[in-house]
Structure formats: structure tokens, C-alpha cells
Design a protein around this nucleic acid. Structure first.
Length: 573
DNA sequence: GCCGTTTTCGGCCCGACTGTTTTCAGTCG
């Protein structure tokens, strides 16, 4: 099962959406939305809490606690079911379209009977929306564009969603007797930013038992196909998972084959052909005799092709074969190299956990240093003030070194305004151990202005890291239009690091931009941007993304010892 | 519906942008 907190959070969010769509009290909808976030981000498993303990979760009161209990006990909530009966699921799906919110969705449903994205496209093309008040040609355009953006994600899910499903399935299958090996492959193993379906590979002499166990798992909603070698299912969350079972002696070749990418595999098969061999998921064979050469481990397969083992995140045919031939594969940064997280929030702004909770959890993860970087005043909605920030600094100094001797850095996430200015003057900024600066608004500036804006932020002697540099949201918002090469040059020149934001709907910078930035001599910081203790683990997705960008520990400032990091943060001041 | 209290009601993130209006509603961050 997915984490019960996520499941309950999703239910509360759905109820909030349904309240908004049906024109219910907006404050009530907001209350459910806040509760949904709080539950999803809560550190304890909600399925083990009683009503009293549930009410200790921020923004969860009696009414919501009762509904959570009702859900955990019966699998549904009466009032939610009632609203579901009134509003087709497709109407709720429509509000996922950027620029289309609950009000317009309801209008479309009530007046035109539109209850799915497909019907909506149809209605626009037959110009039926023009009958409605408040809908003009630009609205039609925006909706169509929004649908396009949505569908480019193409039913792909974020990395964390797929990883959680995959980890759980692998753990369960590994425990089945007769299963000698099991892991996930495909784009997930390569840390692609979104995943279309999950490929799980297992090795066993008798596949039957594994196939049965797989189709009977509680996460499985529907079995799409099942056979001797392959079974495909759809999980309750709508994600397709394929299980392939191979004989133990073919494990390596199969894992190599199913990990991909397609382009990488074409290259490795070509290399096999040149060596008078044939590579398939069943092994590496001698073409003339048809004899099996090797297939038991990936390492052997690559070795027999004259290559060292290539880490999956590099397998995109982006030069890794050539680098491997020359013996110049990078020694990729790994999660173990990370000494601290440099961009995190607390409940002082829009986070959910207290500073102490965040610090304790960070220390438990074994970090040697950790930065808290709450939002600055210019992001008005967070209501930050000088006094609040200074009070937090005192608390941070008090907690410094108190948990497993972890050093605590007091920082902030500044807002880069349209001119490239940030929230505070230099003398106030000088009081921080480090400053992240990010774009949070005015995303549509022309490229020249946007470039100048970010470059100016880099030139600020107190800005150390540009947070989520393109501000894209995967599947929802494209990155800003800027001359990134110019930004990379400015970062290298001024000693400003670029963030690899590990939050699964950002993953910003992405792999391709990382590769390019590295050539300019830029340094990077891999940060979780956590808003709750449960987000700290997202860092692994940032590390995977950095690996796809060929980064070594040397390229990443938060793998460095604190002394060296502090020198970098001084920016030559 | 939650929360905090100058507690049991009254406020709830607040400003910008967009497209449609003709003074504003809806959406977004």
C-alpha cells in the first residue's frame, strides 16, 4: 500500500475540490486543503492514530479527525461519496487544466453538461463555449493550451510516486520463495523525471508462483495481461506495472535489456554485432555457434563488450559508451556523498514541521550540516518579518550542534523580483549563513529581461544558490524563458551555485541543463526544498537527476566538508 | 472547518494577472 497518509491526504484534497466545484464555502474547502497537506506531511502513520492523536495534527479538528477514522475503518466517507455521486470524476479532472478552475468547470458541467476533458475539447471545437457568460476566444485558447500541457505529461507520473510503488512491489516479491533476485528496471532505474510505467524484473526457476503473488497484491486494481514470462497490471492509482520473470542465469542480460534506454541498447547491440555476438534479453550469444557467452550479471555483459559497467542514469546514448571506451566514465555523486541539505522550510512560513522537528530528522539522516531557509518578506503570502527571522536565528543558534552534533546554518530563500532585486539590503543579508534566491512570480518576462534578472541575482554578493533555476513545474508549467548559457556563465563567474531541486514535481535544473551548466564550470547544490520532515527523503531524486547530468561529488557543494562549504559561501568577500 | 482568543465567534495569505467586463470574477502562486 501507498503510505496511508498520502491516501488520506488525497481523499481530503478530493473533498476540498468537490466543495469548491459545488460552490460550497471557500473557507471550508481551504480548511480541507490545509488538512490534506498536513496529513500527507505528518511524520506519524495516520492509520495508527486514534481521534485524539489525529487532532494533534495541525489543521485537523474534530470533524476531519472523525472523517479520517471513518475512512480508515470503512474505506469511504459518507459525505465524500455523496458529492462524488453529484459530480462526475471527469469534472474534477478538468480543474487540473491550468487556467480552468472549479468555477468554470462547474459552469461547463451545469450549463453544457461537459464532464470530461475530451468532451471539453469537442465543445470548444464546435464553439459551444461562446454561449457561456465569461467565456471568450482567449479563454478557449488558454484551455486548449492547458490541455496540451497536461497531456504532454501523457499519463506519466512523478518519480516519487513510481518509486514508492516499485519499492513496495519489489519488497513483496523478493519475499516470495523461489525468487532469487528482484529489482525495478526501465526509466525508473535510470531516474527519468517522469515514469510512464514501472518495469519490475525478477529471477526464478518457476515463474508461476511469482506471477500469482504479483496479481494478488493489494495495490493491484486490474490484471491487464498475464502469461508465463510477463504479467501486466494496473494499480489502484492507475499506474501500469509489468513484471517479467527470467531464469536466474539470464538475469544480467535481462536487467541490461529492460533498463534501457532504447538508444543505449541499440548501441550495445551494435557493439555485439561487431564482435560477432548477439545481445538480447536472454543473453550474449556467439553468432556462429549460437552458444551462450554470458548473461548472469550486467557487469559480465558490459565486460564482454569491452566496456566497464555503466551506471543506469548515464544510459541515454549521450556519450557514455564513448566515455566508457576511453575509461573516462565520471565517478558519479551518490546519496552517501551528501553531507547536508541547504534548502528547507519550517512552519514559520509554508512548511508543516517545526524547526526542531526538521533538525532532529535531518540529524537522524546522518547529515553533518543542515540549513533552514524559510521564505523572506517579499513573498507576501508567507508573512515573514525581520523580527520573526531574527527570532528564528536565535532558535537556530540554540539548536546548533544539539542533535548528533549536526551544525545548523541559518539561511533564507529570497525572492528575485522582476528587476533582479531581493528582499533585504546587504547589511541584513550579511547576517545569514547562506541565501538561496529564487523566481516565484512574473514567470512570463521576455528572455532578455529574465536573463538579466537572474544574472543580477547572481551578482548579489550574498546570494549563494539560485533555487529551482527555471521555476518549471513538471506537467503544469514550463520553465522561464531565459538565456541559460548566460546564467551559467554568471554563476561560474560570481561563485553562485545552481540548485538541483529534488522536489519531485520540480527536478530543476533537469539533466540536460546540468550537463550544459557543468561545461561552464558551475557548481551545484542538491536540495530537497522540504516543507515537512517526510520530504527530506526526496533528496534521492535530486541525486539521481545529478547523476543523469554526469556530476561527481566535486561538482556538488553540499558534499564538501563544512569548512570548504563556508569558504564557497563567502563568495570571495 | 480550523483556530485562537482581547475564547465559543470572526477571521481565514494577499496581491497580481488575465480576460472579460465596463467594474470584476476567476485563477494562480
Amino acid at each position: 500500500m501507498a503510505r496511508p497518509n498520502d491516501e488520506v491526504g488525497a481523499l481530503l484534497q478530493e473533498y476540498s475540490d468537490l466543495i469548491s466545484i459545488t460552490g460550497g464555502d471557500e473557507f471550508k474547502a481551504r480548511a480541507y486543503e490545509k488538512a490534506a497537506r498536513a496529513v500527507a506531511g505528518y511524520h506519524e502513520d495516520v492509520s495508527r492514530l486514534d481521534v485524539r492523536k489525529l487532532r494533534e495534527i495541525p489543521n485537523v479538528g474534530k470533524s476531519i479527525a472523525d472523517k479520517v477514522v471513518e475512512y480508515l475503518r470503512t474505506g469511504q466517507v459518507r459525505v465524500v461519496e455523496e458529492l462524488r455521486a453529484k459530480i462526475p470524476a471527469g469534472v474534477r479532472e478538468m480543474i487540473a487544466i491550468p487556467t480552468l478552475g472549479p468555477k468554470k468547470a462547474m459552469l461547463l458541467y451545469r450549463d453544457l453538461g461537459i464532464s470530461s476533458v475530451d468532451e471539453l475539447v469537442h465543445a470548444i471545437h464546435s464553439e459551444r463555449l461562446r454561449e457561456l457568460k465569461g467565456f471568450g476566444p482567449r479563454t478557449e485558447e488558454n484551455i486548449l493550451h492547458g490541455i496540451q500541457v497536461l497531456q504532454q505529461a501523457g499519463g506519466r507520473v512523478h518519480l516519487n510516486v513510481a518509486t514508492e510503488v516499485a519499492d513496495e512491489i519489489v519488497a513483496e516479491l523478493s519475499a516470495v520463495t523461489g525468487c532469487s533476485r528482484c529489482c525495478y528496471a526501465g526509466s525508473l532505474r535510470r531516474f527519468r523525471e517522469t515514469v510512464g510505467d514501472v518495469d519490475v524484473l525478477a529471477a526464478a526457476k518457476d515463474p508461476g508462483k511469482l506471477m500469482r503473488a504479483f496479481s494478488q497484491m493489494s495495490t493491484v486494481d486490474e490484471v491487464i495481461a498475464h502469461g508465463e514470462k510477463k504479467t501486466s497490471v494496473r494499480t489502484t492509482k492507475g499506474l501500469q506495472v509489468d513484471l517479467r520473470v527470467v531464469p536466474p542465469e539470464a538475469w544480467g542480460a535481462a536487467l541490461q535489456y529492460f533498463t534501457g534506454s532504447k538508444q543505449h541498447n541499440i548501441r550495445t547491440r551494435e557493439m555485439a554485432v561487431h564482435a560477432r555476438l548477439k545481445l538480447s534479453e536472454y543473453g550474449l550469444f556467439d553468432v556462429e555457434t549460437g552458444d551462450l557467452v554470458v548473461s548472469e550479471t550486467e557487469d559480465e555483459v558490459y565486460q564482454r563488450l569491452g566496456l566497464p559497467w555503466i551506471p543506469p542514469p548515464l544510459r541515454e546514448d549521450r556519450g557514455e559508451i564513448e566515455a566508457a571506451q576511453r575509461g573516462e566514465l565520471p565517478d558519479l555523486v551518490s546519496l552517501d556523498d551528501i553531507r547536508g541539505d541547504l534548502h528547507t522550510h519550517t512552519n514559520l512560513t509554508d512548511g508543516l514541521s517545526t524547526l526542531e522537528e526538521m533538525v532532529r530528522e535531518a540529524a537522524r539522516r546522518g547529515y553533518s550540516y543542515y540549513a533552514v531557509t524559510d521564505h523572506a518578506p517579499n513573498l507576501y503570502m508567507q508573512r515573514m518579518s525581520d523580527d520573526k527571522m531574527l527570532a528564528q536565528r536565535e532558535e537556530a543558534r540554540r539548536l546548533d550542534g544539539k542533535h548528533r552534533r549536526m551544525r545548523l546554518l541559518h539561511g533564507t530563500e529570497l525572492n528575485i523580483d522582476p528587476d533582479g532585486e531581493v528582499d533585504w539590503p546587504h547589511d541584513f543579508l550579511a547576517g545569514f549563513d547562506l541565501c538561496v534566491a529564487s523566481v516565484h512570480s512574473h514567470f512570463t518576462q521576455p528572455a532578455r529581461e529574465m536573463t538579466r534578472r537572474i544574472v543580477r541575482a547572481c551578482e548579489n554578493p550574498y546570494v549563494n544558490i539560485i533555487g529551482h533555476p527555471t521555476a518549471r513545474l513538471i506537467g503544469r508549467r514550463p520553465g522561464v524563458d531565459a538565456d541559460l548559457d548566460e546564467v551559467f556563465r554568471a554563476c561560474a563567474r560570481t561563485g553562485t551555485a545552481l540548485e538541483i531541486n529534488a522536489y519531485p514535481d520540480r527536478l530543476d535544473l533537469n539533466d540536460e541543463n546540468i550537463l550544459r551548466a557543468k561545461h561552464f564550470g558551475v557548481k551545484f547544490a542538491i536540495n530537497s526544498d522540504s516543507h515537512s520532515v517526510v520530504h527530506l527523503g526526496f533528496l534521492r531524486y535530486g541525486v539521481g537527476t545529478a547523476q543523469r547530468g554526469w556530476l561527481t561529488a566535486e561538482d556538488v557543494i553540499n558534499t564538501w566538508p563544512l569548512r570548504r562549504l563556508r569558504t564557497f559561501l563567502r563568495k570571495g568577500r
